[in-house]
Design a protein around this nucleic acid. Structure first.
Lengths: 128, 128
DNA sequence: TCAATACTTTACGTTGACGTAAAGGTCATA
DNA sequence: TATGACCTTTACGTCAACGTAAAGTATTGA
């Protein structure tokens, strides 16, 4: 049953300790304490992973918090669940949109790269 | 040979005119003027599209500006081109990373949704 | 002619996501 | 015992990406 210090996680995930504490201020993680010192469980570590993944996808911390809270079992009344399902579908729409965007961008990048390479080639043979 | 007003584009892309002007302040678009009034060409419109796509992907305006500038032909000296190719490859790495992230998130969302639906079902038959 | 509508610039305000001191506690080891 | 290497809280600072007046110009229709 492993546990982690804040600096361990900050090194592992390449973020500052300030960042991790900031996520706690915003209510995205809540590690237990040993005295004053924060002790992170594997579950806490997973939350961090999810937050950072969300960040790479351009989600706000608030968005990530909501998504992460979806995975918490607990307090599931029916209305809550229905709300969650709607939220999930919205998220999914955004993500598929992003998939499209990425596809387009990758295509554009390939084209731009090919153009660059072509330009280099003609420059090499063209001694005008 | 169509042209657009700022409010037309703001409606089409669902952003405020302030936002579009902001992109201009940051050097991402430069529509011509008729008197004081901005007149957007189809090319300008395309730039806006690219900017907003970048935004959905979590790029900064600065990032988008660089990417967009890649597609400009003109001023291509060899060092410039090589720099661009490198930049493109970096971008591609980030994007494939994002693709991974999205795949993971979609999987998680599917799971969360399934869990919700299950919970609803058991709630319907379980009258405890 | 006057009111509405759409455009403009200038400039200060706001929000999110941290950065960056400053000041202090705890523990190992040289 | 004192020097690092960690950890803590408090709190002001910063930067990007706009928001939000405020004040003015230009055109159009009743």
């Amino acid at each position: 049953m492993r546990e982690y210090s804040i600096s361990q996680l900050s090194k592992e995930f390449q973020v500052t300790t300030r960042t991790i504490r900031h996520y706690e201020e915003r209510g995205l993680v809540a590690p237990r304490r040993r005295g004053q010192t924060r002790i992170y469980s594997p579950a806490d570590r997973t939350r961090l992973k999810l937050i950072l993944r969300g960040k790479r996808l351009g989600l706000s911390l608030e968005d990530s918090r909501e998504i992460i809270d979806m995975y918490e079992p607990g307090k599931s009344n029916i209305d809550q669940l229905k709300k969650l399902i709607t939220a999930i579908q919205v998220q999914r729409l955004q993500l598929t949109q992003q998939l499209d965007d990425i596809g387009s961008l990758l295509k554009d990048l390939n084209q731009a790269e090919a153009d660059c390479i072509d330009a280099l080639k003609s420059n090499r043979t063209d001694h005008s």
